[in-house]
Every structure is written in C-alpha cells, then in structure tokens.
Design a protein around this nucleic acid. Structure first.
Lengths: 344, 344
DNA sequence: ATGATAAATGCAAGCGCTTACATAACCACT
DNA sequence: AGTGGTTATGTAAGCGCTTGCATTTATCAT
C-alpha cells in the first residue's frame, strides 16, 4: 500500500507497537526496564518494520558511541594486522565497535584521521607510537577523548602506552649478532622521523655496539619506506659499499624479506654470505627461505591488553596505566656466524 | 580563564565571529556563498577555538555522510588489500571517506556489519561477491542504499558488479595445467558456501577437465578456510590419497603458499614432484620459492572502477552498470609438466 | 536619488534518538 | 477502602548541525 516507504524510525515503531518512543528506546537499550509483554510487542514491531536505529541520532542524544578509533600506519602488510585483530575481538566482547584508518606513515594524514575519528564520536583512540605533535595531545585532552599508545612503551610519556621496549629488544638482537662474530653491521630502518619505534631500534643496535667496543657511528643506516621493494633497494645500496656489512638488521620483517629477495637476486647466499634479521615475527618470517631470524612481538597480547586498558580509561575516566610486554628473540635460519670476518 | 571548556560547537564559533550559525555552516560547506571578509572572520574563530564539526549532527541534518562502507571477508592477508587501497584512494579524491569492516568470511557477521554501516549513515556500500541472503538486498533497497559488488562479475544479478569472470579465469589456468600433461588434479578451495568466487573457480576447473575428456568428478576437492595453515593441512591430506594428484590448483595464493610450505616440509619438490598454482597474484606470489604460477587479478583497477561506479550510483541515484575486467595467467615456477604421468 | 534585482545573512524548523522528570498503574498491607 | 511504595510508561527537552525561506544589505541602471 504505502508505495514510498523509507527507512522506519523509532517513531514508526512506537506507533506500530502502540507505545511511546521512550518505551521503544528502553526496549532496545535497557530491556529490563520494560515489562515482558510490551517488550514482546515492541520487538515484534521492530523486526516487522525492519527497523535499524539511526546511529548518528543515537550518538547525538546519548553522547556515547561505543566506538573506538584506531589509526595504524599501514594496512598494506600484516605488521599491525594480528595485534589489531586481537584488539578488535576484545573490544567487540565489551560491546564496542572498531573504526580503523591508516595514515600511510604520514603524520599530517594521521592528524586528520584523528580529527575525523573524534568528529565521528569515537569514545577513545588507539594510536601507534608516541611521536606526534604536542598539539594533537592537547586537542585530544580538550575534547576529553582518552587515547592509548601501542607498539611502544614509555611510561614517562603523557599518554599511557601498552607495548614493549623497542630499544632493548633490538639491542638484544644486535648483541646476538655481535656475539656471532659480526663486526660490520648495517641496518635498513623505516623513516625515523615521527617514528619512535624506528628510532629506538636503531639506538638499540648502537647500544649493543658500544657495549661490545664497536663504534656506534660505524653502523651503516639506510632509512626507507616499509615496503618489500624498498627493502630490496636499500639492500642493494648497502652491499655496494666497501667493505660491505656482514649482517643487515632490518627494522621489520617486511624490509628483511625485501633484503632477502634482493640477496637472492644478487646471487648472495643467506646466511652464508650475508646475515639478515627482521623484527616483528609476522607470518611471512616462516614462509621465506631461509626462515627469518627475528624478534617476536606478542601482537595478540598487546592488542588485548590495549583494548582492556583503553576501555577502562573510557568507562572510568581514569588516567590509564602503561603496560610493558616482553619480546623474545626467535633464532631461525637467516642469521649465522660471520665466517668472512674470522678469515681476515 | 574558562577552566572547564568542552568541545566547541557551531554556536560557539558563531558567537565568537559575531554571525549566525547558518553563516558558519555555510563557510564550512559552501564557502563561495559567504563574502570574503566574514569568511575570514569565521575561519579565524574556527581555528582559534579548535573547532571540529560534530559528524553525527552533520549527518543527521544533511542526511548525507560522504562515507562509503566496505565489508571485506578478511583483513588478515593481503588478498583484498591492494584493491581496497585503490578504492579508498579513488573515493578520497571525490571527498568520501571509507569505513571498512571485515566479516571473517561469516555470512551472519557480514549481515550485521551491513546493518551497522547503514545505521552509521553510509551513502553506499561495497560488497565482495554476490552470494548472500535475498533479504539483505531487500533491506538495502528499502533503505535506499546503493550497493556494488566487487571481485565477481555477474551482470544478470540484481546488484551491479565490478569484477572478473572467476570461472573463466580458473578454467584458463586449468587448461594450461592439463596441457602440461597433468591428469590427476586436485584443488584446495575456500569454503564454497556463501562464496560464489570459490564455487565458480571449482566449476572452472571442471569445465576445463570436461573439455579435455577428463571426468570432472575426478577432481579432488578440499574446502578449507583461507589461511596458510589450512592450506598446509589440506595439502597433506591431499597427498595422502592414492594415487596422489600431480597438480594442486589452489583457490588463492594464500592457500597455495600453505601448500608449498607443506610440500617442502614433506620433502616434496615443487614443481618437480608436484605442481602447485595460486590465484590473485598478491605480493607473496613472488616471494616464495619457487615463485608461484597464478592468475593475475587487476586489483587496483578493480578498486578504482568500483569506486567510480559506486559514487556515480550515489550521486545520480542511477541503477549502476556492471564492469568486467580481465585476468591474466602468470606463468612462474611452481607449475611444470607432469613427468610422473608420462612415465606411467 | 530611486526602485528593482541580486547577494549576503539570519531565523527557526527539523533530523531521530535518549533521558530526566512527571504521571499512571499496580501491589501489598492496615 | 485507603495509604505508601514500587514499577511501568509517557512527555518533552534537547544533542549540534543544515537548509528553506525571510529579511537585510549591497549593487546598479535609470
């Protein structure tokens, strides 16, 4: 009959069920505050009409969206995938929805996304790493949006963080590399500007070098974007130096895989002629051959803990506590002793 | 001074600039409808106060969100990543924002996500594949939300699609496999229920077999989830059959990589003892060794075209036209002639 | 100057929901 | 039957924005 029906509203449901909109609203949000019989009637009307609540209206009236925003640097590889997945599962259990966006490692893009997410009514925000303009933290504070940093751990920062000690993790790996006899080290790092993880990882390598009596400044550093292709290019670049490094510590597994592919292309055997290490221990690390020696990051655990902590901050307006997780070195096949070095 | 300021509203800006809220609104959405001098004044006030428009309120008033929703089966691997990335870049150019969610290949989850996205005011929806309850299409029509299907092409369907012919693509690959002398074929497919792509790809293999005088029913089919681990398990399972297949056509590259890893673990040489093929041509296909023979899907192009078409549907309320893209066989190293077969 | 036309701005009515508060209905007990 | 105390439901005031229409102001040919 009504040939031009459009999406039904609360009001339509109320009419159909013969109650007020308040009652319908309560049926949906506080079922126990409504008596069984009316509830039945209302619920019937709801799915008879195919009613879906209008989210915008709800957010506006309730000033609560049950939405959490996350801005990750990239979705193109799985570096953040597992952690985010765990994060999302956890918040979902608590009745929250995740809104993700990716900044492509661009600080300006990130800032815009933060504003967008806030404008969309996110109840809280998950950010990766501590490095960003102070102004952004001011903004968040002003808007009273709780934010939590992950993939980094720095309790002295004004924003709480759930993560690991990037510097120490990389240092441990570098110590192992040095213990295996390597003396000429190089690293393929992500762009360190605006990326504390990258910066700290480089620092970690230097720490290990210094402790072993090597000159930190001798570390050859190439910074590039986090792509397989870039890792390959950087590796080529690195190996053209004389003397060439005997071990290349990569900022993450993606770069390491790129380096390995390039090594293969150049006819260099890994690890016999050149050792390569990664960071993160994503799925890829076991797939490449040789398998990749890397630092295992407890991604799922990090995601879960972050979720719990952020929700706690949201629901209690508490300031939020930082949580440190530990990483673990995973020795596989791409790192071995520095033969060449011993020959000299 | 005001120690307890909370997020500023349009009204605050209006007061600060000494104009009405209407004028402020116009400054933000229709700058040319406001005279230069007032615009300056308003814009000043805006960033003096650090004003960000409230999205919910805006959507509600304008009944337009400039948001497009996309529901993809998974974010865990990069099968959909590149295409989605292109999609998002394209809509961004047109002033739209992308809201992504993942259904984990679960139809019920997908339905819920669709409702959520609609409730959130998405102006349009990007869906993967045609297979879903009719009721969902009814709902979308009722809510007047344009939807477009990607990764599949079927112009006879009620919802327009931008994609490729999964059946024909897989058939072409299978023909090649058969031409190389393989007679005992197997496939590791995704779960075909609710997944037309998976189903059509299997059908494509059977088409090729039938055309070459093989019995389609002889195709060994294992269905499993799209994970590397599952691909590995399925492969093990497959190879325990007698006689074992000489070629395993996988439903996508992820499964193929799993199969290859398992082959390696079982000491089976690829492709000498067993040929393996993939589908999609994601980055991974070039990284594994041997490199993977697969079907190249024009992901970026698909994403772009889908974006253009969907926006067109949204802005003109046009019914939407389907677009077919072509795929291409990429011969690499994991597929070769069937030696064993010739020996017998 | 002057009236007509156009441009700039203001007014105020919603958009669809939640929720504090008011009211009505019900339920023992005296 | 009357009383006080619950409990269930209704009333209506916003939430922060957009936009059609009304009003004011600027522009210009006469």
């Amino acid at each position: 009959m009504s040939k031009h029906r459009s999406a039904p509203t609360l009001d339509d449901v109320a009419k159909a069920a013969g109650v007020s909109t308040a009652t319908v609203s309560r049926c949906l949000n506080n079922p126990q505050r409504v008596v069984e019989t009316t509830r039945q009637r209302v619920l019937c009307a709801v799915d008879e009409l195919g009613y879906t609540p209008n989210f915008a209206a709800r957010v506006m009236a309730a000033k609560r969206s049950f939405t959490i925003g996350a801005i990750i640097p990239t979705m193109e590889n799985s570096i953040f995938a597992r952690g985010l997945q765990a994060f999302q599962e956890e918040i979902h259990k608590r009745g929250y929805t995740l809104l993700v966006s990716s900044s492509a490692y661009k600080p300006e893009a990130e800032e815009e996304q933060i504003r967008t997410l806030v404008a969309r009514g996110a109840d809280g925000l998950l950010l990766i790493g501590h490095d960003r303009e102070e102004r952004i933290y001011d903004y968040l504070e002003r808007q009273k949006i709780p934010a939590l940093v992950a993939w980094s751990f720095n309790p002295s920062n004004r924003t709480p963080s759930v993560g690991f000690d990037n510097r120490q993790a990389m240092k441990t790996l570098a110590q192992q590399v040095i213990a295996l006899g390597h003396r000429r080290l190089a690293t393929i790092s992500g762009i360190s500007k605006g990326n504390d993880r990258a910066r700290l990882r480089i620092a970690g390598i230097k720490d290990a070098m210094a402790e072993s009596g090597l000159l930190p400044d001798d570390l050859i550093v190439v910074e590039t974007t986090y792509e397989i292709e870039s890792g390959a290019d950087a590796f080529k670049n690195l190996m053209s130096q004389t003397p060439a490094p005997t071990a290349v510590l990569c900022g993450n597994d993606v770069l390491a895989v790129g380096a390995m592919r390039q090594a293969q292309e150049m006819g260099l055997s890994v690890p016999d002629e050149i050792s390569i290490t990664g960071f993160d221990d994503i799925e890829l690390a076991c797939i490449v051959s040789p398998t990749l020696t890397t630092v295992h990051v407890p991604h799922r655990k990090m995601g879960q803990k972050a979720a719990l902590e952020l929700i706690h901050m949201i629901e209690t307006s508490a300031p939020g506590r930082s949580v440190e997780l530990s990483t673990r070195l995973v020795a596989r096949d791409s790192l071995t002793g520095a033969k060449e070095n011993q020959i000299r």
